[in-house]
Design a protein around this nucleic acid. Structure first.
Lengths: 109, 109
DNA sequence: TATCTATATCAGGATGTTATGATAGATCTA
DNA sequence: TAGATCTATCATAACATCCTGATATAGATA
């Protein structure tokens, strides 16, 4: 646990990376983008929550380079940034296939 | 986002799974166990924090089956539960190799 | 049995994260 | 240009997570 010049340890950083995945709305967004690219209002509709809420989470996902964007007229089209994002979601599926019940009942997180 | 019988959506559950990895102390513990199995006091010493704090996080990691234990006399020896835990940590390393600076500066998580 | 060591648990306060609702900027259409 | 649509940002309130210090339990040793 040796802090870097910025005061972050390697562990802080890795935890923060996972924190990016640790929200139901952000996961819902990533799962949608696993299927196909999509614009903001479409995601808001699909996830069933407000546009500002979606946009806030997208800002986080984009900043951390989990997703990327392109503009198309009025709209901003989001897609997964690269294959590692896909892989980490797959691995989470694997883990859940084995541990869903335990994770669900864990009272500490 | 269809809730299961327990009121959890699949997304809730997956987010909660990632939440298990989203803490610096839990990451520090998992990184130690990546190298070799270890007892609680040894981890507390290595991570540099109190034994109750380590034990609390271990309880979470054990409950969610990220780690497993065996007793040896007085001591409880912890190790990684399976290879998927190892893989997800490796994948996080991969992602950080590309995104560390962005993640570090993200103000939303 | 008495005592020591190792580990686990818990309540409360401190801290960090997320949602809400209002609003602003940008692009399109008429 | 005016109005409509799409997206982004922000402050505050609501909520969840984590740490601290005290304490409990189990096994070991004498």
């Amino acid at each position: 646990m040796k802090p870097e010049e910025n005061g972050f340890t390697r562990e802080d950083l890795k935890a923060k990376l996972f924190q990016g995945f640790a929200d139901p709305i952000r996961i819902a967004i990533l799962e949608l983008l696993r299927e196909r690219e999509m614009c903001v209002s479409e995601m808001a509709e699909a996830v069933g929550c407000s546009q500002p809420r979606i946009s806030n989470h997208l800002a986080c996902l984009r900043w951390c380079q989990f997703v990327q964007t392109r503009k198309e007229g009025n709209q901003v089209i989001y897609s997964l940034h690269d294959d590692r994002i896909r892989k980490i979601l797959e691995l989470a599926d694997d883990l859940l296939a084995a541990n869903a019940e335990q994770v669900y009942r864990c009272i500490r997180i």
